[in-house]
Amino acid sequence: MPSNASPTPDTAANSAANTSAPVRRIARRPFWLRVLGTVNGAIGGAIVFVLILSAALAGWIAPYPPAKMAVGGRFGLPQAAHPLGTDEFGRDLFSRIVFGSRLTLTIGAIAVGISLIAGLAVGLTAAYRRGWVETVLMRSSDVLFSFTETLIALACVAVLGPSLQNAMIAVGIAGIPFYARTCHSAALVEVSKPYFEASVAAGAGHARLVFVHLLPNVFPTMVVVATLGVSSAILAAAGLSFLGLGAQPPDPEWGLMLSGAAHYLNRAPWLMVVPGLSIAVTVLGFNLLGDAIRSAMDPRRQG
């Protein structure tokens, strides 16, 4: 597209007339408004907001402690005292879901945090150092990439032993190759740009080049990847818990709740439907939000 089609044709022309005149500042809506102003962003943001609220205020929202059993009230149908019914130990399902959101968010944050930090380190190092360092780092991440994430996570748990904490670590490690690869390709683009070379030519040291120029320019891409990655991390961890390799009873972890409820599918289907839906809605929320962030960051779609 020729530059004339740009929505602000007067900017270039101004400069032709008088280069010292400032170009008109283009008023842009703030970033978060552009994210939440879209349908996807609004829905995703609302879901994530409710989730965070429920995790933060679980003690106030939930009517019962998550592990409180009641012998008389097993498999209770949804009713006034138990809005989502009770499970096989008479525990209040609503309270367990609310407390479970805490675990879900923690899992998402920690697993993605591990992937993100390690991925950034690997990707940036490879793109910055080039040469054999790049070859070794990126080829080994390719090798890991060729296994499915779940398989790597399973292997990690097998080594570390089953626990919620180890599941988070395992999911985080399994995600590293993807984050490293994305970061590597984003960083390669920046490294070849003139501003980076100008900084090299000015004599900038490693730390300045990486932390002042490279990292801030790669970070937006990685934020999008991470937001979208939260949902797959939650799914993967729920999967591990479902298989008994993640959270252990009586943790109110949604994947674990699914697994426990599977035995009573005929008798109390809501025990499976509710945590399943919770996972699905959470995943949907993070995906929508990540999508909206990506759109808002795309310079071609500013408005």
Partner: peptide, 13 residues
């Protein structure tokens, strides 16, 4: 020192 061709990518955005 260097001055490059493309004025859009020669400054850190």
């Amino acid at each position: 020192q260097m001055i490059f061709q493309d004025p859009y990518s020669s400054l850190d955005p």
